[in-house]
Structures are given as structure tokens and as C-alpha cells.
Design a protein around this nucleic acid. Sequence first.
RNA 1: GCGCCCUUAGCUCAGUUGGAUAGAGCGUUGGGUUCCGAUCCCAAAGGUCAGAGGUUCGAAUCCUCUAGGGCGCGCCA
Length: 586
Amino acid sequence: MKSHLRDLLYQALQHLQAQGVLPEAGYEIGVERAQEAQHGDYASNIALTLAKAARRKPRELAQLIVAQLPASARVAKVEIAGPGFINFFVSAVALQSVVSDILQAGDGYGRSVLGAGQRVQVEFVSANPNGPLHVGHGRGAAIGSTLANLLQATGYEVQREYYVNDAGRQMDILALSVWLRYLEQCGERVTFPVNGYKGDYVRHIARALHERCGAALRRDSGEIWRDVPPDEGAENGDKEAHVDALIARARSLLGAADYRTLFEAGLNAMLADIRDDLEQFGVHYDHWFSERSLTADGAVGRAIARLKQGGDLYSQDGAWWFRSSRYGDEKDRVVVRDNGEQTYFASDIAYHLGKFERGFARVVNVWGSDHHGYIPRVKAALQALGSDPDRLDVVLVQFVILFRNGVRAQMSTRAGEFVTLRELRNEVGNDAARFFYVMRKSDQHLDFDLELAKSKSNENPVYYVQYAHARICSVLRQGEQKGYPWDAASGAAHLHLLTEGHEQKLMSTLSLYGAAVERAALAYEPHQIVYYLKELAADLHAYYNALPFLVEDAALRNARLALLVATRQVLKNALTLLGVSAPESM
RNA sequence: GCGCCCUUAGCUCAGUUGGAUAGAGCGUUGGGUUCCGAUCCCAAAGGUCAGAGGUUCGAAUCCUCUAGGGCGCGCCA
């Protein structure tokens, strides 16, 4: 419709140019949805933007343009309003056609080819596999997953990826923690390090390991603790040194093979848990990318070598620094430490470089907002290596605060540990969780009202929207029972009977769906789908309350049912993008 | 201290590349509807868009400064 109106305006402008009213030049013709009903359906500000060039008052120019507009069956009325806006009122015929469009396209309605098959990668969650996912990760999962769905629906070829941080000290701490719990299983008495992972999940992993391996990984406890520097709390205690020494001891006492067994036990158990959690949450990945693989196949070494070649590395204090400040970062960053180990940042350079080498036209990272300071250095690295940093977009996700009965829900009883995603899902259900997670703009804090998410009332937006879908199903069931099954052909033939105000409003909202999907996808703003759904559901409920559907007049009845079925289709399509179910009854 | 993000009605939040009298839900007040499944409609009240300058036909939106809040500033990951 928008492009149709642009065409009409373009033709009018051509006439005016021919008459010498307007100078010859190419113009951007802006056509927007009108904000208020009294402004019609679409509005153009073309007269305002061209007033200067035409040396006429905007309203006067608007009149000239309108006078030259070709007639169109899809436009019922054109008005000039305000400072010089041209308002278009869409004809009933044009409005009604949306119903048949939807019924014809079905599940495909709202999809577009905007992305033209370009390959886009969305990387999200990527939580370290050293513990279960918590409620904060859940928001990243919901937003990332919806974003991927949106981009797919707009014609991009999307790859969903999880970057597994399976290297580094944190994973060694997990391995050590598992080992100590395992030794407890063997009957040893251990003093658990302050820095160790104390969650119950570590005990579960240790128990399974003990059942599988017996005492094969047991070592003499005197040897383990010999000369280990004291933990925090003791005199001259240092929790970092303590835990590092224990890791080194585990390595030496167990040997490479047994340490690997231990390490893998922790990693694999955690990964399986995370995978399972996300799968149940309706979040699916195409690829789980291992950080260790980057070192193993030499990608990190190659990236560092390239930086060195480009003159972007220098040696200082025994370490290798990347001159990121040259590319807009606050300061330079270490990529190889003085002990010869590569930093996490070094892997990340290789990882992001690899993303572009894999042929993605665009790369989207969904990160917790606490990582925002990391963006400049990654972009700096891409630029130094000759990739276009603008092809990397980072969506920052703010924190989630749980509320129960109006008060901030306490973090779990175990000190410092957040409520897990699984606990949240079990309490409020997957649908409510996913819907609530994407309800706010991602860079806004999310106040998550647990009681509201569970309530079965129209104040609960999930319930309100899902019920709109169920309600339509219910009407159709009622129709069957009354001997009024929906006749699709009759409905299609009598759409012109849909002239009531509520019907027009509903059809108008339906016609906005495609634009809403595109906007949400391009701006990386899943919350726009939620707002769209709320409006669509409100229109449906209002229609339901205002007019009867199962009327005796078959033509009118089938037309109304056609509108209902179309509405149901769009509700379902939009809910599916969010990963929320569309129930037939509730 | 420096950097990034945020600040819109009593509350929770929208506001589509700068557009018309800044909107919605909840809450409050008054009225109507209560029929296909569990609710909708109308009206009223409520705003210095944190504050101050600037850019222009036009600013919640862009720029500068100030205030308040969040986060980040490791040879950690």
C-alpha cells in the first residue's frame, strides 16, 4: 500500500515538474502510517519537505499535489491537514483484501524477501559452561532466539550459534571443584576452596563420575594439599593462589589423561545441562562453537601472526599487546601474557575473524550489557585485520529483576547464586517466560513480575494474547456445534460485507503485520512484536464484544469467520516468532 | 576520575530513519455493556518528555552542558 501511494505521489510530482511548479530533482517521497485514526491510514509529509524548493507554503503545495493525484480504487479519500500533511484513507476494498492475502499465505504470511538470502549469524547466550543458566541468560536466550526468527522471516539465511568457553581458568576451577566433591564420594575429607564452585550441580557431576570410574581418580590426600598456599580466611590467605595451586596439583597428580577425563566430565555435564535447558525453552542452535578448537586448529596463532605482520602488536613487559587504541579503543590490550599464555581476548579475535571468513554478511552478537566495554576492542581487532567492523552488530541485554508480590525476589538461598532459568521456567512456564523476556526493549531493565506471569487474567499480556487465539478457536467450535461450519469460499466472496468500525480497525491492524516484522528485524527489537500482538488481541477482543459472529445470514457469517480465521493466523505467526505457543483452548 | 547505556502520566512502558494536540495498559473518578468462553466501550483526571542551551519550517527523537541511576574500566574469562 505504501509503495502504491508513493507511486501516486510520484506521478503527481512529475506533473508539477512538467508544469514548472517544482524544480527538476529526485525526491524522497515519505509515506508513513498515520498515528491517529482521524488522520486516515497513511500520511505523507512531502509537501512540507518540498515547500522550500517550490517556494510555496506547505499547505498550498499540498493542494497542488493532491489536485494532480491519479485516481485509485485503493484510496477512498485524500485530505490535507495540519501544517500540510496529505492524509490518505484506504478504501474498504483495499482493506478487505488483507483477509484473503492472509488466508492464502497461511503460515507464510508476514514473511518477506528483504534479506535477499544474505547470510547472517546470530550468536547468543554463550554462557560459560561452569554452572547452570540463570534468569539473566534466559533473557539473552529469548531475545537472541526471537531475533534469529525475525531475521529468518525477513529473508535472511540465519545461523544460530553458541560460543562455548571451554578453555581457560574457569573451566579448570570447575574440574577442580568436581574432583574435590568426587574425593568426598571416595570418603576423603576435603576443605572446599573459597573460590570453588559450591553449587549442588557439582556434587551431581562428582557422584556420576564416581559411579562411572570408581576410585580411579583418587589420589593421596596428603599429596594433594602438601605445600598448597593457604586459602582466604587463613593467615596470609589468597584464594586465587590457593585455587591455582590446587589446579596445578590436580594436573600433576592425575596426569594428562586422567585430568582430561575429569575436565571433560565437568564440561560435558554442564554443556548437556545447558543444551537440555535451552531445548526445553524452545531455543535451538545450528552450531556449538568450541573455544578450544580455535587454539587446536591454530586459528588463534594465525590471527596473532597477522596482527604482528600488520604492525599492530608490540612487546612490552614481556607481554604482547594489540595496539587497539589506534582503532578507537580506550587503551591497548594484551593478547599474549608474559607467561606465554594467550588471553581470552586473543581467542575472541580469532573467533570473530573466523565469523567473517565463514562468509557471513552480517554478524549479530547478543551480549549482557555488562560486556559493553568489550565492543570497541573487538571492532578494533576486526578493523586491524581488514574486516569491516560495521558488519558486526552487538545487541546489549539489560538485567532482569524478579518481583514477587511487588517485592524484589531474593536471589537463591545459596550465597551469590541467581535463580536458575530452569526454576523460572518451572514456575511460570515457557510461554510466559519467553513473552515476558522480550516484552521490553532489550536495553531497558526488565522488571519480571512472577505473579503476573502466572495469573490467568487479562492483565497478564501472555494470557490476553493467547486467549485471543483460543477464543477464535472456540467460536469456530461453537459454529460447528450450531451447524454453522465456516465456509471459506463463501467468506472470500463476501468480504465486502466487513464494513463495521471494529472490522475495519482489525483489518487495518492485520495489514500492519508485515511492516511490524520487518521493523522489528531490522532494528533488532523483538519487543515490537509483543506490542503488535497486544494491539491485535485488543482489536479482536473488542470486536468479539461488539458484534456477534455466528449470525443467521450465511454470507455475513462466513465473511466474519474469514476475518477471525485470518486474525488467528496472524496471532499464531507472531507468537511463533516469539517461541510462544498458540493454544486452541485454555 | 574516564567511557558507554538509561531517565516519558501515580505505576509499568510504547513512541516506526526529526512530523500534526506526546500514546497504551494498570490504577483513580463517572457512566454504559455483561450476548459466541473468562470483557469490552465512552468520558474525566493525570506530562516543563530529568534540567538548561543549540541545530530548523518542525525536536521526546540530533548536538553540547548539568543532575540522577545502571554498567564497565585486569597480563580474569
